[in-house]
């Protein structure tokens, strides 16, 4: 079910501000693509445009094409809600629904879509929690509120919630930036497992993380203040970190700026 992304000539604007300039990128299925780059370079913006979450921000608009297995997610007959059902997202800070129990959090997407069969929901909850490596830690307290878990557990809960609707792609927006090193490791292990089934795109500030989990790395950069963000280069992770094609990439990776 994992699908491939083809991003063609993508430009993103906030009102009059040109935030991201002409991105061309292919994301193969069952593969982890990492977006790296300094703050404000547009990598999160690009990520959010992949499931139309940027439309939440007033004034944001997109030009160009984002093809999911050849279908443009911005075609006029495509509903953003359907796009998001197909392309799940995990956010920077864990955001479980505070009014719901752990189990309800996991199956929230299904229940809100109208699935009522309790047995089915329970199965999905278990499968998703197992998939997120959380089942053993929470199986005895599924009815407790999700807010009672630790930060790392909450983030895995959010991943379980995202995979419960069986998306084709998972987008992760700095999923470990609010977590401690041990929780980070747990999430990274999880990503490695998830890529067997999902296409994953992850934004990260942590270059070691990009090197550890991703197969392909895209480096974004700003050419100057007030200039739009650019995709500088994209290549196999190994190549980017050992022998990047651009000077800017090398500078960034070796810590000379950013």
């Amino acid at each position: 079910m994992a699908k491939r992304f083809d991003i063609k000539d993508l430009n993103i604007y906030y009102g009059k501000f040109h935030a991201v300039n002409s991105v061309n990128l292919a994301v193969p299925p069952r593969n982890v693509t990492a977006f790296i780059g300094p703050s404000g370079c547009g990598k999160s913006t690009v990520l959010r445009s992949l499931n139309r979450m940027h439309e939440v921000i007033p004034g944001a608009r997109v030009e160009g094409k984002v093809l999911l297995d050849g279908e443009d997610i911005y075609a006029s007959n495509v509903d953003p809600v359907e796009v998001r059902r197909t392309i799940g997202m995990v956010f920077q800070r864990p955001n479980p629904f505070p009014t719901m129990s752990i189990r309800d959090n996991v199956v929230a997407g299904l229940r809100l879509a109208g699935v009522k069969n309790k047995k089915h929901l329970d199965e999905v909850a278990e499968r998703s929690l197992r998939g997120a490596n959380l089942w053993n830690e929470v199986k005895d307290r599924l009815d407790r509120p999700g807010g009672g878990l630790s930060g790392g557990q909450q983030q895995r809960l959010c991943i379980a919630r995202a995979i419960a609707v069986q998306p084709d792609v998972l987008l992760m927006d700095e999923p470990c930036s609010a977590l401690d090193p041990i929780s980070t490791l747990a999430i990274e292990d999880l990503i490695t497992e998830l890529k067997k089934e999902y296409t994953i795109v992850i934004v990260t500030h942590n270059m070691q993380q990009a090197a550890r989990v991703s197969d392909q790395t895209a480096f974004f950069n700003l050419l100057g203040v007030g200039q739009p963000g650019q995709l500088i280069e994209v290549d196999d992770t190994e190549k980017i970190f050992s022998n990047p094609g651009q000077k800017a990439t090398e500078d960034y990776i070796s810590g000379r700026f950013g």
């Binding site: 139309r52 979450m53 439309e55 939440v56 007033p58 944001a60 608009r61 997109v62 075609a75 953003p80």
Partner: peptide
């Protein structure tokens, strides 16, 4: 695509 957006909302 990219029509006017209202509030903290995806366009309907």
């Amino acid at each position: 695509m990219a029509e006017e957006v209202t509030g903290s909302s995806p366009p309907a």
